[in-house]
Write a protein that binds this DNA or RNA. Structure first.
Lengths: 245, 245
DNA sequence: CGTGCACTTGAATTCCATCAAAGGTTGTGG
DNA sequence: CCACAACCTTTGATGGAATTCAAGTGCACG
């Protein structure tokens, strides 16, 4: 079995998460072309980096299985996690404007990716308007999500942030065909805190609090959402009926 | 003089800020094509909206003169300013993934824009790879800037945020050929605070503090940077010489 | 000339960070 | 397979930075 394409029975055409990924809306012949430029690599183990800030931009990466975190390191040295990536997510859009990666991408567990060489992707998207538009949509979604994140960090309390975080993952697992109520968070409390602008201690305390209040059940990295309505009201989601009061 | 194209002596070819805008890297024939789809509209006055969240996505907008703020309103009602736009900036990338605008764009003073109908832009970028790549670069830059903003909000004190804000505007004015030391901030203290995740009072207090310490000089909306080095050290920028200590 | 908004400054409060310490879990090498 | 180290997690006590509440000034605009 060759090192590259070591699982060559995998392709976009039969990929279970392709509707979350770049292939969305592509017709079969376009799918073939896209599939041809994609490389399937060996798995990354926990802690391994796909790329580092400063390295020349080679490829974008689509998560196939497992999960990753993206983070930046500011010039005064502190790291900031900017996203957690689940299967179907594309990694690297923040680096397209530069010739180098502007962030780090690190596996949170044993994970696999599809590597999409950027120059090939550019060439191919010259030929396939649908592919180009899907890329634009995905980048726009990322911008939109980042703006929402700004709003979360600027306006919400620690508890609201954590509740929003849990509901966000619930949605994301659901859209991947997994349980929206019961899931495993592959990142540590410290990583959740870093992402949400909180300390480890605060995250831990609030998880305990929500557990005590029976809104969730926490068992290490496993989370069970027991009272989604309550989480939503904590997160600050207005129900339609209350909106006009 | 017709209402549309009321200043038809303006075009991308002679636009002083085109190197900051979409036209960058386009050749002359491509510039012509782009110029043909752009509409120059009457000025927007302070407080006027270019578009509102929920309206169907018609166009992207390039700031020609003046300034704008973009903001979102979360479902529990609080507004979050997500960007301030200066001449050359493109507005609307966060809405491309949707059929509707996801944010509001409001003039901070009397301002002009170039309107770029999105469907024409899509069609045109099918034909012009350079245009497409420039759009991707601009979107990627926005993603990158948003990630930096997340880091700022999560890791920095109020004073660091404000110093970073002032230095950011200094850079942006400089790249537009204006003074990097002396400029007018068209937004209110409350808007600065909203953007930076601070209250009006904190912004006001810190501006007074920096003024007293002679790092800046404040006269209403006019700011004079007196000690950029000091601002940079407050903002947390490491000088090269100190990086290895 | 007065009304409304923007700005400034002070005092009290609060939420979360920090500091500290003690389990728990994971993984590794003997 | 066990033992130990490294790291992750939890919980408590304390402190501080920024918000909130409050009051007053200044400025723009009708």
């Amino acid at each position: 079995m060759s090192d590259r394409n070591w699982l060559n029975n995998i392709n976009c055409q039969n990929c279970s998460i392709s509707q979350l990924c770049l292939p969305y809306t592509l017709d079969n012949s376009s799918l073939d072309k896209l599939d041809n430029i994609i490389e399937r690599k060996r798995p990354y183990h926990k802690g391994e980096l796909i790329f580092q800030a400063g390295e020349p931009l080679r490829s974008l990466y689509a998560v196939r299985s497992g999960s990753f975190k993206s983070y930046t390191v500011s010039n005064d040295g502190d790291a900031q996690i900017t996203a957690f990536h689940l299967p179907g997510d594309l990694i690297g859009f923040d680096s397209v404007h530069s010739n180098n990666y502007t962030s780090f991408a690190e596996a949170l567990e044993t994970s696999m990716v599809c590597e999409i060489p950027y120059s090939s992707l550019e060439t191919l998207s010259d030929q396939l308007p649908l592919l180009r538009r899907q890329m634009m949509r995905l980048m726009s979604s990322e911008i939109s999500a980042d703006k929402q994140m700004l709003s979360l960090l600027n306006n919400k309390s620690a508890e609201q942030r954590l509740a929003t975080f849990l509901l966000d993952f619930s949605e994301r697992f659901k859209s991947r065909g997994l349980s929206s109520k019961e899931f495993r968070l592959s990142m540590t409390r410290a990583e959740i805190g870093n992402y949400l602008g909180l300390t480890v201690e605060t995250v831990s305390r609030l998880l305990s609090k929500l557990h005590k209040e029976a809104a969730i059940q926490v068992d290490g990295k496993f989370i069970l959402l027991r009272d989604v309505d309550r989480l939503q009201s904590i997160a600050g989601v207005q129900l339609r009926a209350c909106a006009t009061s």
